[in-house]
């Protein structure tokens, strides 16, 4: 291959790896608002104000994106939320 040839890049793979994913917390009728706030502070290390704001979004809109980033990290966060009894999913970021 000549030295001045452009490198072959598998753009499909590159895009797939770079796709950000959202961690979404869903409202449920049983979980207390104070519990949602506390779990978000504990799992993500959010300050109380941010966790409280996200909790209100979950409560008022039925869901809230609480974190966006790499898939494997999003899944790690999601299972921690599950282990604290919260309804959460990971989905491609919109």
């Amino acid at each position: 291959m000549p030295l001045d040839s452009p490198p072959v890049v598998d753009s499909t793979t590159t895009v797939a790896l770079d796709t950000p994913y959202d961690v979404v917390v869903w409202d449920d009728p049983i979980t207390l608002m104070t519990v949602v706030t506390r779990v978000l502070m504990k799992v993500f290390g959010f300050p109380k104000e941010k966790a409280h704001h996200l909790m209100l979004t979950v409560h008022n809109e039925g869901r809230a994106t609480v974190w966006t980033g790499e898939l494997s990290k999003a899944e790690q966060y999601c299972i921690k939320l599950h282990a604290h009894g919260l309804l959460a999913t990971v989905e491609p970021s919109r």
Binding site: D28, I30, T31, V35, R38, K42, A83, H84, G85, L86
Partner: peptide, 15 residues
Amino acid sequence: EAWFQTLQVASTTLA
């Protein structure tokens, strides 16, 4: 903290 986690999982699971 373990009680907090378990009580929360218990209430949502039971519901």
